[in-house]
Design a protein around this nucleic acid. Structure first.
Length: 282
DNA sequence: AAGGTCTCCTGAGGGC
DNA sequence: TGCCCTCAGGAGACCT
């Protein structure tokens, strides 16, 4: 699924194509893709229709269209959501929501697994109330490293679990968590309570570094499930050092990268550079 | 109260 | 060929 770099690529593409455009019509083809809207998809459509998009913003993996008069449309790509700018000829598979714009283009939201979706957020321009609990992401100029460190140390859990907790720090998913842990290097099960300040600073540095590099490459695309608004793939997949690299030699020491289940999903690490902690303290 | 698990959904790929 | 199993980049509801 798209993590911060992929969502930021999408945000930039949307900003380019939809800012200053007015939404002339809304078609909801998959009602499940309209989230947390008790009044139903038809009401959702009517609230968007006729509104001008003034900005496109992002926090972590969420992005939102800022509408005139201060409302917003909150969007999340989930595991398989994608936005496409479409002249009107082709229809992507699993098209869920189509926004017609006043310049004749359409903004299409397609989502194979329907874990993503859109939500109307009244007065949500600054920060939609639905995501008030989501922490700032590490690329946010106002990200507070000292506060993050304090909150991290109050946890009693594995460091990767903490990295994936969007209420602690947002934007990081399974790929960039594994990449940052490999770069630092740290084992995913290291106890948050006992991380040294130097280790936390190093981890944050590598989180920012790997996400900036990925952003420069247009994000990570394993398949056609993640593409930008023009349908193009990103190229960071070829730069991954840990994620998906089972059996490949570690770029530092040559030891084969190991894949193991963690949190009902896969974690990839170098068994030599990122040794398993011997006990709860280390 | 916070940590950890389960579940929503479709499709791809491997083993038999 | 097809059937069944596992797995996939997320996150919120729900347990303990």
């Amino acid at each position: 699924m798209p993590e911060l770099p992929e969502v930021e690529v999408v945000r930039r593409g949307l900003a380019q194509h939809v800012v200053s455009r007015t939404i002339s019509a809304v078609e909801v083809l998959h009602p499940r893709s309209v989230r947390r809207h008790a009044a139903g998809p038809h009401d959702f459509a009517s609230r968007l229709t006729g509104r001008r998009v003034d900005d496109v913003r992002r926090r972590g993996k969420y992005l939102w269209l800022v509408l005139d008069e201060g409302d917003a449309v909150l969007c999340h790509l989930g595991m398989s959501g994608q936005f496409r700018i479409d002249g009107g000829d082709s229809e992507p598979k699993h098209l869920a929501i189509a926004l017609a714009l006043d310049d004749g283009q359409r903004l299409l939201f397609a989502d194979q697994r329907t874990f993503g979706g859109m939500a109307f957020s009244e007065d949500g321009a600054e920060l939609p109330h639905q995501i008030a609990h989501i922490a700032r992401d590490p690329l946010d100029p106002e990200f507070d490293t000292a506060m993050f460190t304090t909150r991290l140390r109050k946890r009693q859990t594995g460091v990767k679990r903490a990295l994936l907790d969007q209420t602690l720090v947002s934007g990081i998913g399974n790929i960039y968590a594994d990449e940052a842990l490999w770069r630092t290097p740290l084992h995913y099960a290291r106890n948050t309570r006992h991380l040294r300040t130097r280790e936390i600073d190093g981890l944050l540095h590598h989180v920012v570094e790997v996400m900036r590099e990925a952003l420069d490459q247009g994000g990570t695309s394993f398949d056609t499930l993640y593409v930008n608004v023009n349908g193009e793939s990103g190229y960071f997949e070829r730069s991954l050092a840990a994620y998906g690299q089972e059996g490949m030699p570690c770029h530092r020491c040559g030891t084969p990268i190991r894949r193991e289940p963690f949190m009902n999903r896969s974690s990839y690490r170098c068994p030599v550079c990122q040794p398993r902690p011997r006990n709860g303290r280390w």
